[in-house]
Design a protein around this nucleic acid. Structure first.
Lengths: 227, 227
DNA sequence: GCCTGTGAAGCAATTCACAGCT
DNA sequence: AGCTGTGAATTGCTTCACAGGC
């Protein structure tokens, strides 16, 4: 029934002038993220240039795909030479919005939420965990690597005052939708959801769901259905 | 360069006779997994039938998509009525290979690996965690909810003796590829990878990667590129 | 009348292939 | 000669629309 448009994004700020607006597929964004990772590796090793073919090999895709992905945003390479590693890395950071810090809150500090709160890898990429929430009085007040777990009753007032950009949702399945609604109402526009639930949110809110049960079932399917 | 076929699966056991083999897209399998979750909810609530339209609403897709997804595997519904909830749930479990238990090992018991090892939700769906490994002598021997962390040097011999089906890879980025290679060499055919790395494995090994940095960057992109 | 199952149509993503710059 | 950038061709996923059974 309900017709759905593909989940894509405007990139009008990249298309100069008044040309028709471009839309970027999710899969493209994921690959850009992967390319950036490889470029950072190359940067560390002091390499100056890289070809679409090398990026493709590292990313498990094709050189044509790499060039097409980049072409949505501009022409960053030199024919006959390839791409300047630092320049392309910079462009990708800009495209992905990594030129600034993002304020992240974690909602639900059970096993997964707590592990995420303690994970320092996010900070390095500009995702600053600024608060963590739980509804269990036994957990509220606890310390998570310098972060004090707050009572979830403060969620709305905190969000309105501290305007975090991204909420990581790590609550039990049955709490996921109600908490998501509270987050949206308080003004959150981006949610990383670890609950095995399909969240219903307004179109201007972006949700990425990480569903480990689903991934395991995908592996089960693959193991079961092989020639 | 390297041309890639789409990552799909044979389902010849579902297509009777010698008709040309069907291939199932990843996105379809993910949706089947979601449908099963909703069906289990309906089962608990004692509902007997469900229409493709109701499944679609819960799954954020369309009724045509639901029917098309199911049609790859057979005709499970009744025209004018819908689908029998228990029957369709059973069929989906069969299709997804959930009619049996799967033996899962966890490699790397840092924050994420340990949280996964302690997570009981997997067991309920037939994913039994049978061993956990680490290379840190300070962690080896520790107890994770009844599971003793083993020394990773035992990995190959254990895998060959205990033939686990799925390995969850939760090691640091730089260790991901070497450990994946060890797993593959020992005979593992399915890997759930939590390391932010693009694993290179033979075609008969299935890898699902859960990359939180990539998801966060997808949110960053969405927040940055809005009209 | 209601809802499934499915070819056909439509649309989006990937791959091809080559012109054009270095 | 080497490698990018990009229209065109292709592939494959999604949606339409309707015949067919309940």
């Amino acid at each position: 029934m309900v017709p759905r448009g593909p989940r894509m994004y405007l990139v009008n700020q990249f298309t100069s002038g008044s040309r028709p607006v471009k839309r970027i597929a999710d899969s493209t964004v994921r690959r850009l993220s992967a390319y950036l990772r490889f470029l950072e590796d190359f940067e560390h090793r002091g390499l100056a240039t890289i070809s679409s073919d090398e990026l493709a090999r590292r990313g498990g895709t094709t050189s044509a795909q790499v060039r097409k992905d980049l072409s949505f945003f501009g022409s960053f390479g030199k024919r006959g030479l390839g791409y300047s590693v630092p320049e392309l890395a910079g462009r990708l950071r800009e495209i992905l919005g990594l030129g600034r810090d993002w304020r992240v809150i974690i909602v639900g500090t059970g096993k997964i939420g707590a592990a995420l709160a303690r994970h320092h890898g996010f900070r390095q990429r500009g995702f600053m965990i600024v608060a963590a929430y739980d509804n269990d009085p036994a957990i509220v007040g606890a310390d998570l690597d310098g972060l004090t777990v707050r009572d979830i009753s403060r969620l709305e007032s905190d969000v309105r005052r501290e305007h975090p950009d991204i909420a990581v949702l790590a609550v039990p399945e049955e709490a996921a939708q109600p908490v998501a609604q509270r987050l949206v109402k308080a003004g959150i526009k981006a949610i990383l959801n670890f609950a095995p639930a399909q969240l219903q949110v307004p179109a201007d809110v972006t949700v990425k769901t990480v569903n480990m049960a689903m991934e395991l079932e995908g592996l089960s399917f693959a193991l079961t259905n092989r020639e």
